[in-house]
Design a binder for these strands. Sequence first.
DNA 1: CTGTTAGCGCTTTCAC
DNA 2: GTGAAAGCGCTAACAG
Lengths: 334, 334
Amino acid sequence: MTVTMEDIAQAAGVHRSTVSRALANSPRVTPATRQRIQQLAEEMGYVPNAAARDLITRRSRAIGVVLLGLTSPYPCELVTAIDEAALRVGYRVVLSRRSDDAGRALVNIKPLIEQRVEAIVVIETPSVEQYLSLLSHYDVPVILLYSGDSRFCIGTDNVGAAKLGVDHLLDLGHKRIAFIGCSRYTIENDERQTGYTQALLNRGLTPDPHLMVIHDDWLGGEGGRSSMHKLLALPQPPTAVFCWNDETALGALGALGAAGIRVPEDMSLLGFDDMRLARYLHPPLTTIAQPKELLAELTMQTVLSLISGNTATRKEKLPARLVVRGSTAPPKER
Amino acid sequence: MTVTMEDIAQAAGVHRSTVSRALANSPRVTPATRQRIQQLAEEMGYVPNAAARDLITRRSRAIGVVLLGLTSPYPCELVTAIDEAALRVGYRVVLSRRSDDAGRALVNIKPLIEQRVEAIVVIETPSVEQYLSLLSHYDVPVILLYSGDSRFCIGTDNVGAAKLGVDHLLDLGHKRIAFIGCSRYTIENDERQTGYTQALLNRGLTPDPHLMVIHDDWLGGEGGRSSMHKLLALPQPPTAVFCWNDETALGALGALGAAGIRVPEDMSLLGFDDMRLARYLHPPLTTIAQPKELLAELTMQTVLSLISGNTATRKEKLPARLVVRGSTAPPKER
DNA sequence: CTGTTAGCGCTTTCAC
DNA sequence: GTGAAAGCGCTAACAG
């Protein structure tokens, strides 16, 4: 069977509690015995039992991360950054995939509560309200990783980020700029669409409803493809398209390729997220990078301060960064 | 504070053990009291404490899944399938990202052992031997999710799968078929390369060493790009390229686009894995789909039988499926 | 500095 | 059918 502290205690001829202290590097134990016990533990292949420790300390040193799934690049990259940041402060991450199926919401967070995670970080937005009300039944703090409506929100400044991107297109000389969004991720989508609209307005351009197409594809690839088809079918298609995320842009890019429209010569394309694969597309995708690492870092900071009793509301809107690559260029001619 | 069984017991005027039984739907409790207790638990917002349960039952109902990271599509899709299968049989999945940094190997599996996961499923191969020897110190069963050298291996028949793909290219009339592989994932890479070689040999073609280029990019995008450049620089470039995975194919596709080479007219491209985004590329990628769901299903079956004491060795090599899309076509002219 | 004691919240014998 | 009691492996007072 697995070796316990008791086993080590007997082997060392000391009491369990001494073993516990020695292994915790407590100063209240002779360096000599500590040394001996630690070596013994090593030799005997001792591995602490997390359940027992969690039970007595009443802490799990775990945070739950709720996301829609592991199928989209950006959330995966973000969760990786969080995992990394959590590791650095001695925490582990418990993942909970929540299906888009609202009925399964409870099924998905129950394990997190059973594990007694010390905080829950929600990465993606679909029907958050429902989640939040569900989570409010428990006394676990919830952190929203986007600019939402909660006491703890740490997100990218989507409006500013979108402006940044659309300004880039405007600077290149584009006048007919379209937006492809997704109705599933209301908050992110709306904020980005707002930024898009504002950027146009700032330059005295009137946003054209025909140039805003919103799909309802959770994952984006198909939505980007079909939305681009709609735009191409317009009597007067746009010269540039801003996609709400990179997967959508990838689908849109595919549609353009199929239609024989060159990017960026005939049409500029702008994504959002800077997913890792974006740079390997042809052409390399111009996109907007969210500050993943910083988001993760601030999240863990917040978690830690929350756990240590600080309940001050925290809201952050971090700036994004434009990454210019090959998919954007001045419009053809006039 | 959080409500415990004791709290419910007091509220119901019964003993803790009765509450335990009622909540476990034990027949050894009057339907009436059971009903009453369950309702009370519901009202009071009771959520069992996993640590306490795990400790007493000496079971975690968790399996560990070791993978390199959440940055590659296929492993993410596979882990999703495993999570789904695990959920169905009442298990949860604990993820462990292992960096490519060998030194951190122990850092990564320790939490799994501390959690007392009942089995460990290893998804990706880099330096497995080291992992396996590390894991052998503990008495947790290890299942390799690829055709490797262990008592429990459940994988895709990579050799056969590669043959399937290369046969498709041969059938289209290609004679100069290249292979782009990755030195990091030795087992998968070698098996696929073997299948590639065998397929050529079967048709009386001599494999040309110049047409096999192996990169060392963990993630594939960059490796595919640079490898394709090498192939294009050849005095006699291939007319078709088989990439060891889809990300590599994506990078290779980008390189072809940048070089102005049309796919599939000038060059056919074949991937491996059928990642979700593959179909949205331009052209849609022809690739080889691994039986993810079946792999996941068999994995959980094995875990369950292993836990219930059955220690019979289990080795499976499941067939893959060719998915013909737009990136393959007959070679131009002769 | 070390041993003793008392639990953490839960399940599971064993009596009645 | 229910209560009493024991204990999973660990930590943290409290003595000495």
